[in-house]
Design a protein around this nucleic acid. Structure first.
Lengths: 383, 383
DNA sequence: CTGTTAGCGCATTCAA
DNA sequence: TTGAATGCGCTAACAG
């Protein structure tokens, strides 16, 4: 059963509270190695000349006495920092979680560490987070912005900023974006190719580059197919799944001619999926459903949801790489924006529109594994 | 469409690289407010006497010149830090994501910030993370331990450690655990109550307090029901869903008499669910499935998965609270361990065993909303 | 190649 | 109630 701390008595439990022992400083290290502090510093940091033999001795001594350089003192003196701030909306959302994971892994392997702040989509919390980053003197910050204030504050403060997933007006920084237009266009095109003509778009915002791009891609696909652009099929909703559920219900009550539904992100897809199920609609026989952003539940449900994979891990890693380039590379003048090429993942939630279906046709059996269509080139450097 | 940075020309783009402006220091602030640095320090930190009028003037001046105290200098001098390390296995797993989110929210509201390190379940990465925490001088660390090394290192270094979700031998610290025994016992009891007698437990480890507790709870439920304890029904597997899938397949090939399956965590449940679907088994008509840990896909699939809700958010917030108590409270001697009371969420994946079913019975329609059974007391202080 | 000197920005003595 | 002096631990100059 549970290993309880009582097991080992009070001796080490007492250590939990008190913290008396002074940490060894570089002075102690220098003394232990029989050299001066500055030589010890050079030996450990690798800056400046140190005899190989001496370096080895210092490293051994450091190991011996358990010396760990004080990052605060080091930052203070050297005016640099290995800390990078990550300011995201909601780490519970798998999109942000994967983004953060990609960032963290890449930065960790480059010798940086990450300070994570959730802002819950609140501009005030975002500014508060930026203030925290300034206080701890991060050298860079990666932000999925909700307003331009935090980005501006940080850039004014000399922090290297990378906007992730979306970019806001009035703040020019590096950025990594998904090609929302292409992803949306491609998946809408998939529906068009199946014969759909009344395709609704469920979307919560069109002010950010994400929503605007997805709407544009949706429209472009319809346009290039010569389909009518019915404004009533662009269904606004709030971000919560419950809101999306209501919006879908209202839409289907109003427009029984709709044969396909495109949910602009994973939250809306969740609500849409629930709405369809609660109405007892069969997917894809009665209605096809597609989404933007691939999250785990979409491949667990039957049929699986056809969606746009944003390669969120890669998005995160690319942000991290941009940070490292900016911090360690030459002092390039221009802000750079990279694009991630999304790809459509076709699962069982899409099929021909119902009017084209033979009376008693069965949908394709869904599979657990994903079939990716048009893997294509994964990355487009800049644009 | 996308708001590209080119929009605003090169002027501010140039700022992206260069960072010339010196940040205002407390000297600048003092000068601006017409007082000495030490008075400014007291005014902002609230330590020591400052005339109310002077404090107001300092705060106004700080706002005016954009002064943000340097956390590094402050930590260095005061030998304290508002940084807390969070060392978890895999932030992509919703369990850890929720844990981290709960921790971050609670700590942020208490004025701390978190440094997040993923260790991918690797002891070496865990030690590396601990070293990072030591280097940046966190005042506390919250860890889901994979070995006892990191915990010991940090405690030896005087860092307040909270072990989260599980505790390891050989390292005595504060901790927050889920009552795995009770959760497992309760959900196994649920199956027993439905009439199941051949219940398999799919489990990846029994060395940690988590696996050990869940196994113990499973056994306790069988014992108290007077059911035979068949060791062959405790099915070992590795942690990955694919491994779980194979293990379930092998089990069902070997033991056609099994009527219910208990997956000991969300990853194993994923594999188990896929295995059942790929075999074409109906849930719960052919086999009942339950899990430990409630993650989003479990309420999206049909039927929903009956599972143990660990209240992961609360787990995280409790860890954070323990940290704050330890850092700000009196220097209590004893390490404290809190328990989170899990609760069973009954969905559609459980029903009577197939031998008791009338030939052509249909399972209950699954619903999206959750029905929670025995909400009961949410928290038990200590144990 | 190594040691000495001098702060980084701040909070904390201690006097006033 | 305020100010002057003193390092926290480290690294960047500089001189050897």
């Amino acid at each position: 059963m549970a290993r309880t701390p009582e097991r080992d008595g009070g001796a080490s439990a007492r250590r939990a509270a008190a913290r008396p022992r002074r940490r060894p400083t570089i002075q102690d290290l220098a003394q232990a190695a029989g050299i001066s502090p500055s030589t010890a510093s050079r030996a450990l940091s690798g800056n400046g000349y140190v005899a190989a033999e001496v370096r080895a001795r210092v490293i051994a001594a450091a190991e011996q006495i358990g010396y760990v350089p004080d990052g605060n003192a080091r930052s203070l003196r050297s005016r640099t920092s290995r800390a990078v701030g990550v300011l995201i909306s909601d780490i519970r959302n798998p999109f942000y979680a994967n983004l953060a994971a990609g960032i963290e892994e890449q930065l960790r392997s480059a010798g940086y560490h990450v300070i994570v702040v959730n802002n819950d989509g609140q501009p005030e919390a975002e500014v508060e987070g930026a203030r925290t980053f300034m206080a701890v003197r991060v050298s860079a910050a990666i932000i999925t912005p909700v307003s331009n204030r935090a980005v501006r504050m940080l850039m004014n403060d000399g922090v290297a900023v990378v906007q992730a997933d979306r970019m806001v007006d009035g703040a020019t920084s590096d950025g990594v974006l998904v090609d929302n237009v292409q992803g949306a266009q491609e998946i809408t095109g998939h529906l068009v190719g199946l014969g759909h003509t009344a395709i609704a778009l469920l979307i919560d915002e069109t002010d950010w580059t994400t929503g605007a791009g997805r709407l544009a891609g949706y429209r472009a696909a319809l346009r290039s197919a010569g389909l009518p652009m019915d404004p009533a099929l662009v269904v606004p909703t709030r971000f919560q799944p419950e809101a999306a559920r209501s919006a879908v219900n209202a839409l289907l009550d109003r427009r029984p001619d709709v044969t396909a539904l495109f949910a602009a992100n994973n939250m809306l897809a969740e609500g849409a999926f629930q709405a369809l199920r609660l109405r007892g609609l069969r997917v894809p026989e009665d209605l096809s459903l597609v989404a933007f952003d691939d999250v785990p539940w979409m491949s667990m449900v039957s049929p699986g949801i056809t969606t746009v994979d944003q390669h969120t891990d890669q998005l995160g890693r690319t942000c991290a790489q941009l940070v490292v380039d900016r911090l360690e590379g030459p002092a390039t003048e221009a802000a750079t924006v990279r694009y991630i090429e999304p790809s459509v993942v076709v699962r069982g939630s899409t099929g021909p529109p119902r009017t084209l279906l033979p009376a008693s046709a069965e949908g394709p059996a869904s599979t657990v594994s994903r079939r990716t269509v048009t893997p294509g080139p994964r990355r487009r450097p800049t644009r």
